[in-house]
């Protein structure tokens, strides 16, 4: 569970243009989804430039065919958040593989109408995560890798 107070978040987000709005949303989301935590890290843009940005990193719980899975995700917030949508990825562990599809590309980037049609204040992180949970519950973005590295059991003769 992430233990980050509002003062620490404000300090981390000092270059964010709408810092108070952003802090409020993050505080709200991490209180509801306790397996997500705010992390500052370098985000590399398509043109190769990089920038220190806040992400919410961790897992979101989905229910798929009656079982709960904790899907690893990273939601990057631009410094213009919430007036631009987050940039969202699934982050498969070494035991997982990405299942590309309508909502996921080979890099794990997440595409959703909710992100495409993002508009503050109707859109927010909490709503986004709820949409992800529904969409991923129908079409999981990652699956477990087959354990091909394990030695084959010898067959009984």
């Amino acid at each position: 569970m992430a233990v980050v107070n509002e003062g620490a978040l404000k300090k981390m987000l000092k270059q964010y243009k709408y810092r108070d709005l952003t802090v409020r949303e993050i505080t709200n989301v991490i209180s509801q989804y306790k397996d997500l935590k705010p992390v500052m890290d370098a985000y590399v843009f398509n043109d190769g430039s990089s920038r220190d940005l806040m992400s919410l990193t961790g897992t979101i719980p989905i229910s798929y065919r009656g079982n709960v899975y904790n899907i690893p995700v990273c939601l990057w917030l631009l410094d213009t958040y919430p007036f631009n949508p987050p940039i969202c990825f699934v982050k498969p562990t070494s035991a997982m593989m990405i299942k590309t599809g309508k909502h996921i590309d080979a890099n794990g980037k997440i595409y959703l109408p909710y992100l495409h049609e993002w508009k503050h204040p109707q859109s927010d992180l909490y709503g986004l995560i709820q949409v992800m949970i529904v969409v991923f519950g129908e079409e999981p973005p990652v699956f477990s890798r087959p354990t091909i590295a394990a030695p084959l059991p010898s067959l009984p003769s």
């Binding site: 899975y69 699956f143 477990s144």
Partner: peptide, 14 residues
Amino acid sequence: LNGGAVPSAPPTYT
């Protein structure tokens, strides 16, 4: 301790 949930995924899609 600040581990969070262990990531998990459905069994391999076939």
